[in-house]
Amino acid sequence: MSDLERRYLRLVRICYPAGYRDARGTEIAGTYLALSSPDRRWPSVADVTDVAVGGLRQRLRAVGATGVGPGLRLAATLALVTATALAGCWATLELSPWTTAWFGVAQHGTSVTLGLGVWVTWLLAAAAHVAAPGRWTRAAIGLALVLTVAVVPLAAVVDRSRPPLFVLLPQVCLGFVALGVPSRSPGWLRLLPVAGVAAALPVGAAFAGNGGDVFLGYYGWPARQILPAAGTALLLVAVLVGVVLAARGDRRGGWALLVLLGPIGMLSVHPLAGELAARFYGGGPNADWTTLATAATIAAVASATAMWAALIVQRRVAGAARRSVPGGPRSHEASG
């Protein structure tokens, strides 16, 4: 057995559920090997991604949650629109001279913090979604995600200001969901992220334009207003789309809402942290690092629990449906 074959088999073993990989593991690995060039020694990035996605799809299928895939694609479009709209808003504020007054730091170049570079990559992702949906859009989102994370250590190394973690964290969550954006979608849907940016620019400008008030800083009041507002808007749109689809017997919207609960929770971290601070410390809702971290943990655990509970319910419903239909759909083992 070659090293490449061993590596493909290991990947399949990691990603696919046990019963399935016993029935199909060697067959799937053999197909990857047949498609690879003779001089290749390691699985390509595309193959690793494909195995991971295929394994996830199979795990969802094993619990009867086949609707999660279409739901994720719907959630990804909504997440991309939200992420790019927020990026447009933050980019406008980054360019505002009043943010300098709030920071009390010298402005380097055109922007106050290193954040401008991050937000521009998100705007590029919106443009990629119009011009080249699919692989190029996912690559652009991946680049934006890497920069959104990398700006934290980079700012420490070069001793520059950066966007706060409570702004970066929801952006990362939205970006991860947005990676599931469909390769093919109607023209109007491809324009939505750009439309979101266009709609966000005046919002950012309105906040930035009220100069003279020191509280109108990029780190401060606008972020505490804009993030929860974006979370609420995303929740309302997801619920509305879910209701419209459910009326047609399409349950994608429910799964999309469950997928989006995590990012929505992260968008609401600051007000939640303020509530925690008021409760624990007394006084006003003055969030600090501890309450912000606690609020983010609560949001992550709550959204993961909701998804887990939904998958368990779905598994039981699917199991009951299978038992009630004699000779119902065959299992994957039967296919082998």
Binding site: T31, D50, V51, S335
Partner: peptide, 21 residues
């Protein structure tokens, strides 16, 4: 098609009785 997509599709087709081994 990539193998992950192919085998996902084949599973659905096998379940629906449209293809067989």
């Amino acid at each position: 098609l990539r193998p992950g997509t192919l085998y996902g599709a084949l599973d659905r087709l096998l379940d629906a009785g449209l293809v067989a081994v």
